[in-house]
Amino acid sequence: MNDTAAASGVVLPDTDMSALRVWLGAVGIEPRGEITGARIGFGQSNLTYVMSDEAGARWVLRRPPVGHLLASAHDVAREARILSALADTDVPVPRIYGVCRDDTVSPVPIVAMEYVDGTVLSDRRAAEPLPLETRHAVGIWMTDTLARIHTVDLDAVGLSDLASHKPYAPRQLKRWSTQWEQSKTREIPELDALTRRLAATMPEQHETTLVHGDFHLRNVMIDPASGAVTAALDWELSTLGDPLADIGSTLAYWPEPTDAVLLGEPVEVMDGFCDRGELARAYLQRTGRDPQALKYWHALGLWKVAIIAEGVLRRARDNPANRAAAGVPTPAHVDDFVARAVAVADDAGL
């Protein structure tokens, strides 16, 4: 069987699969027989594929989305650097085999990483077999994983130069305001007003840690027996900043049945799973950090998710190849995130 035939079961956008097979061998992955694969993931940003060969070996390939990319977004090589740095810590992450930067293979970098056993709770079918106590444990394990991320010794793992050490809130406001201007499909005055409020009420930052940046249920793999996190995934938004920003984003992504608009049928609203209050309490009890500052970061997290959702909608409209099987947010979803952010900001007195 020649390389072209061996790669016939896989379609990665703009990729010479025969050349990719040669590169895989150079980083220690030596496929036997035909390679097959499928795109996975709820998200619509970097594209992720689980690959396998005829001997049953599995690994994961990850590349940026197709089409126009905003500056600094979707940097899979940077993400691979972070995962490699965390390999010897107690943060659960997949091992990186290598980063392909060969233009003859692909015009964009491709990362090869370890396939980790576990379950991604991407839909209700994945969560239904879990007992109620396991469902509840998932949220508690997620807050524990966040706490581990936030105690990583940046100097020891070589990540102290990953990003600026300047206060995180102004950096976030500047970055995501810029993303909004570059990716929005319409004007939302309520979002612009909230941006001004968040800029005027920034809490003092007391520490700088590694921040995952996008920590929610579909970005972790869990052990279906215990609910423990077996891998934290999707580190493309990781940076250095205020650790409360991470749990704020987690709360922003975590829906409850009373939310006005829900994307699909979210797992988090099923019986047994923690609610937002439980997640916040578990993290604060584990870390001793400031509850009032967390309210600010919850509001900013919802504001940021609204901007991200608008960007996802824009990319999917620009190029249908970037659509995930779960669909894309609608303008109503974006508006709901903005409304919830305003409500949290009001409740916090911001």
Rank of each mutant, 00 (worst) to 15 (best):
S106R: 03
V305P: 00
P224I: 06
V211Q: 09
S164Y: 03
K304G: 07
D242I: 02
R78G: 10
V111N: 08
L132E: 08
R95P: 05
L86K: 01
S177F: 14
R39Y: 12
V50L: 04
S122V: 05
G37F: 06
V108D: 09
A87F: 04
V334P: 00
S18W: 02
A245H: 11
T48N: 12
D271Y: 03
L130Y: 09
S249P: 00
V22W: 12
L12Y: 12
P189V: 07
A332C: 08
Q172G: 14
E187R: 10
E54Y: 07
A343G: 13
P291K: 02
R281P: 10
R171N: 03
R315H: 04
I40L: 08
A252C: 09
T330P: 11
S8P: 15
V220A: 15
E268M: 07
L350M: 12
V27Y: 03
D275W: 03
V344E: 08
L173Q: 02
T230W: 15
R124H: 06
G213F: 10
V50A: 03
I308V: 13
K174Q: 13
H216C: 07
G277H: 09
D102N: 14
I35W: 09
V93G: 05
D259M: 15
V120T: 02
T209G: 11
N219V: 14
H165R: 05
H298R: 12
N319H: 03
L24R: 06
T178E: 13
E30W: 14
P129W: 09
T145C: 13
A232K: 03
E30G: 06
G98P: 03
A225R: 11
Y296C: 13
C100I: 01
D117Y: 11
L159K: 00
V342F: 00
L240Q: 00
T145D: 05
D75Y: 07
P167Y: 09
A341H: 01
V229E: 08
V138F: 11
T178H: 14
A6M: 07
M113Q: 08
T201V: 04
L69K: 05
